[in-house]
Nucleic acid binder design. Structure first.
Lengths: 230, 230
DNA sequence: ACCTCGTCGTTTGTATACAGAATACTGAAC
DNA sequence: GTTCAGTATTCTGTATACAAACGACGAGGT
């Protein structure tokens, strides 16, 4: 049954696994914005009771993927340009900080092989048009940086922001012909500066890159949201 | 009974109120670091069942005030210099951002009266040695800034960080003879720049102020943590 | 005396039962 | 035909019941 798959998944905790699964459904658009969820429906879907579902909902609410109104129900969080800007304003500041702290790590140099593998993945997925794989590789790269930064608080905040950010990026990707991909070269440079311990340039380049992603994604989103309500 | 007080409190939701009460107990040292909690004990204390207690625990865990280990129990989160540095690294970046965004708000100018009232409170509480009142006023000032910034994501992140930061500041205050108070004049200047819409200076001054608080608090904490384990 | 294994108590995690609130629906009046 | 009131249903929020895991304690062996 689905129950066994839930407990055997890596999280080993049902609420965390539920949040991961439902969160992925939201991020990749399988659950549309404003979709109403009921606890019982989710519980039936995954063959668990409402208790772990409630905990999963709390987690998703804190990650900004689900909106709750007391006693009135649960919806998949809406998307808006304002929310997108808010998320990215925070993300720019914190990603820059993470890159700087990662570059200061004594283990930065020894991470080069992992970065190189990741760059290869970014190039191949991009060449093959595997956008989901590309995004996944990008996210993994971010997590390596968070680990290097060795700051659990920063890590927690960025992981939360990353889910929302990825949701907007994937949404933009689906609604625009062109792939709004980040620059692999810019990513390569950032990785290199981190490995060298050049924290100033690592921070500056990261800030620029995230701002670029913000702007390019924003154009697509702005088009969509303006034609939605003319 | 305590039950009624829980529901009549502003949050109107039992888990939120529980989290607020327990969170305050942790922040102000009434619950010491590493203290073990059990769900049933908390439930009995507040005359509620374990269900809302579990939700409150999740909230406190996300705010970094409680540490959980799956199936092994719940403790009041430990304090450490490294954690403190991590929290403040994030806080510096985000408070600066919030001050900048607040200064860009069209409602910034009309907030001057609220800021003035707050400054009076800061001065009187400081003069009377009412340190708790002083911290509370400072926190309220921050929340006004978050509201002006009009960025729910930023607000959510900062509120979470603020609880941890205040815990460290209160801890330092208790363990040092001198009051490690922030500079009222610096706060006044920041409020003024925000009201004027001078976002560049608002950001720069905020960054300086939070860094100063970080350093002065850090000295006290460093003394304590070094003599604790020599 | 120390280490190991088994049992017991405690505590978390999950399922279910129940109460109350919010919304949707039905019907009647204007 | 529209609107308002009353009822019914559905869903959340809380309480309770049950199962399984972890740790502590003690007995037995080396």
């Amino acid at each position: 049954m689905t129950t066994t798959s839930l407990t055997t998944e890596i999280g080993t905790s049902i609420p965390e696994n539920l949040a991961r699964l439902i969160g992925a459904d939201i991020t990749f658009g399988r659950l549309a914005a404003w979709t109403r969820l009921t606890e019982e429906q989710v519980a039936n879907t995954y063959n668990v009771s409402r208790s772990p579902v409630r905990e999963a909902i709390r987690l998703l609410e804190r990650d900004g993927l689900i909106a709750r109104s007391s006693r009135r129900g649960i919806w998949v969080a809406p998307l808006s340009l304002k929310d997108f800007d808010g998320v990215y304003a925070c993300r720019i500041a914190l990603e820059a900080l993470a890159a700087e702290q990662a570059a200061r790590s004594p283990h930065a140099a020894s991470t080069r092989p992992a970065f190189d593998r990741l760059l290869t993945r970014l190039r191949t997925t991009l060449a093959n048009g595997d956008t989901v794989g590309f995004f996944e590789a990008d996210v993994e790269g971010s997590e390596i940086i968070y680990d290097l930064a060795d700051n659990p608080t920063l890590r927690r905040l960025l992981l939360s922001l990353e889910k929302q950010a990825l949701r907007y990026r994937y949404f933009a990707y689906q609604h625009s012909a062109e792939v709004t991909a980040l620059s692999v070269n810019a990513t390569r440079d950032i990785y290199a500066r981190i490995c060298e311990g050049d924290h100033a340039r690592a921070r500056a380049l990261t800030e620029t890159l995230i701002k670029d992603i913000w702007q390019s994604t924003r154009e697509v989103l702005a088009d969509f949201f303006s034609e939605k309500m003319p």
